[in-house]
Amino acid sequence: MKKTALLIIAVLGILLLRAAEDLPFWGDPQSPASVHLSDYYLEESYEETSVPNIVTSVLADYRGYDTMFETVVIFCAGITVLIVLRRTHRRRAKVISPRPERPGADIILQTAARLLVPMMQLFALYVVAHGHHSPGGGFQGGVILGSSLILLALSYDIQMALHRFKEKLVLLFSAGGVLLYAAIGLACLFLGRNFLAYGAWAALLGISEPEAHSHGMLGVEIGVAITVLCIMFSLYIDLASGGDLDEGL
């Protein structure tokens, strides 16, 4: 098996290294990837969406349909993990799985976590809300929010984190984020534009069309953040407890 693998990667390596000769130079401003479409985004997106962070404007506006289904993929992954791993107490008695030893609670760790978690959550909200002007956005803010809950579950135990944020609520919110995204898109449809064409909100809110794009993106990012938050937390509690949700690492 190892010899076959080495043969395969040797052949593949030679082919790829030969192919790499034809790629554009690293950092070439005239490379084919940088001259066709991206110039349009760089030059026009501020006029059209009034969002200085071009990555956010392309992610949530120009490629909004794509991002919506990326969010659906994350949601589906969370649900799949739940289906594969989650087990109730009744079925658990049959299977023996070794679980990590859990020494007594560490007071330094717990105090540090208690101080750190509100900071993390505030920072995450800042990242979501300020994603238009600085690096960040729904995905990053959602992951930071999720990891604040994971930190809580790591330093105390999963029961404590679940007491703050019930499993049923986690699942409801993870669906709610995707639905919020889709609802913002559908509202544009009912206001007489295309799906996810945020310009439709302009007349309703009494603002200019680029600003409507900016606000629409913020709504969409909030939806993404909610889904990512819930799915990251759900992935952790399922994987770290082996599906029992009684204690973690």
């Binding site: 760089l42 990555v55 992610l59 990326e70």
Partner: peptide, 10 residues
């Protein structure tokens, strides 16, 4: 170029 960044972020 922002386009590869968007694709890779997701």
């Amino acid at each position: 170029n922002p386009l590869p960044h968007v694709l890779m972020l997701t």
